[in-house]
Design a binder for these strands. Sequence first.
DNA 1: GCCGATCAGGCAAGGGCTTTCCCGGCGGTG
DNA 2: CACCGCCGGGAAAGCCCTTGCCTGATCGGC
Lengths: 335, 335
Amino acid sequence: MATLADVARRAGVSPATASRVINGSSKPVAEALRERVLKAVAELRYVPNAHAQLLARPQRSVVGVIVHDVSDPYFAEVTRGLQRVATERGRLVIICNSYRDPDRELEYVDLLRAQQVAAIVLAGSGYHDDGVNALLDERLTAYAATGGRVSVIGRHRHQGDAVLPANADGARLLGAELRRLGHRTVGVVSGPATLTTTSDRLAGLREGLAGPLPPQRIRYADFTRDGGAQATAELLDAVPGLTAVVALNDAMAVGALGVLRERGTRVPVEVSVVGFDDMPIAADVTPALTTVRLPLAALGARAMTLALDPAEDRDRVETLPAELVHRDSLGPAPA
Amino acid sequence: MATLADVARRAGVSPATASRVINGSSKPVAEALRERVLKAVAELRYVPNAHAQLLARPQRSVVGVIVHDVSDPYFAEVTRGLQRVATERGRLVIICNSYRDPDRELEYVDLLRAQQVAAIVLAGSGYHDDGVNALLDERLTAYAATGGRVSVIGRHRHQGDAVLPANADGARLLGAELRRLGHRTVGVVSGPATLTTTSDRLAGLREGLAGPLPPQRIRYADFTRDGGAQATAELLDAVPGLTAVVALNDAMAVGALGVLRERGTRVPVEVSVVGFDDMPIAADVTPALTTVRLPLAALGARAMTLALDPAEDRDRVETLPAELVHRDSLGPAPA
DNA sequence: GCCGATCAGGCAAGGGCTTTCCCGGCGGTG
DNA sequence: CACCGCCGGGAAAGCCCTTGCCTGATCGGC
């Protein structure tokens, strides 16, 4: 691997001059030398060692992002927003998948700290586990204390900036609409109870329905298609007279639709199905999914903006609104 | 930000000893000192500077991966395979999205080189552009010359290891099946003509159909849902008597289905639709999509294995088979 | 009781780059 | 013509960590 010294030697200049040519310092370099350096760079296919550079010039230009799983469309969309802003500001992004494992999340915080990133953006639901939260909070505080910026998407925190989707609001809208359409026996296909997103949505839904939601009408499973399918099957078997299935995200709703199709139940004539998040698939399944749209890319963009913003007022909390998207999978409750 | 020297000072030892405690060198350290160091680390929330570490100990443990777009389910799946193997082998992965921009691909190769990564995995279709290919090849060769490993997924190269999906084979299977079912007027909703994946699939399809495929029955668009929708609309308007639409990936097929539904055309009774890749959505749209399954995760896993494998025989090329998945969107041609 | 072997710990040399500081040479001014 | 200031270039100090080598101490063996 060619080094700066190699380049300098080949161009017949000092490493200092070579460095100045290569990353355009404020100091001027005579045209003749500049060309010789550039020529040497090309010939040696020189690429500066990023680690040496970052060590010498503690200019923190990269931002770390921790998400549950980028390949999940929810986070893909959030990440898109994050990336857009980062690119605009000339920042590189390192993405880490925690796969919903709080321990891995902690590890990644340290890893990013070790990488000297300028900011850490933590996206995705938090956990109902005070031990984990305390640990995470402590790590992030330590990071913030050394000048790092922290910004969080979709979880409640006491330190650092936060951007929240209106989970409860959206669910309330959904619940109210179900109620308006006469649904009284509603089943919920829920994500893991350990996630705050789950409980927020559940709470909002309860409020919107303005009626009882007994525990046996809630089934907890993974926030995936298959989790949704299984929970729906259980629900259909356990709850007689069910007129609507609320899935707490669209992937689960797709699973619900699959089970209902298998069983020959007509949607929405016999049973209505609603989702959450408004993923791209939502419009392409049959029937097209009625769901709650969250401004995911905007969430990401905003969080990155806050993280990069040198503003002095920390601990800002912003909520971005949810919106009900009417499609075909929700109809009036059958008489 | 606390440094190793801070820790050493606080623990009353030399930086050397602190270092040895922190990353368990082979050299033994007395229990008393070890504890003092660990205590100092905890109190200062010390995290070693990764850049300094990598500079001091040029142990290359991270692998760079360049994909078109991780949030695309195709690459999400490939990446899953890559990650699995990398994790098994204790390697970290840096993922870069080229967003199908050859220039950005080049930049990322340099960036990864600057990061001193142990290997670069390049995933996703190559381009029909000799200029770009030459440039890329040259960059990769330079990297390989300094001991870097290169491994490539789904593109033809002359240097480095390569793992290929059987694009042509799969398309041939599809074409033959269409022919068997009596389809004679087949339209193709194709990805960008600049990609080699597109031309491979097109060539295979042509072979399988064993009949003419005039240019006006092929529409090129982006490999996205909307691209597929638009191309399908054009095709329906331009080609009378169309009995089947072949979309060159599943996202486009979903778009095709959407357009046909809007127009009230029954699938597969009036027009059949087939896709490619067998993405998770494929089974959940209505009618469920007949498509060609590619072993994407296996492709990723294999590429990572080759990249990490210190085997001496370079330039290995492996092809992983494709498989026709029969679902509901393909039926016999109407009489 | 002495010597050599063994062991724990520290010193210091890098690793590749940036940047401050300094120096020599030039042009301009009095 | 002498002096000053400016400008382009180089020497060298540091950024933070690892590790080979050396030292001082301890211990066992004779």
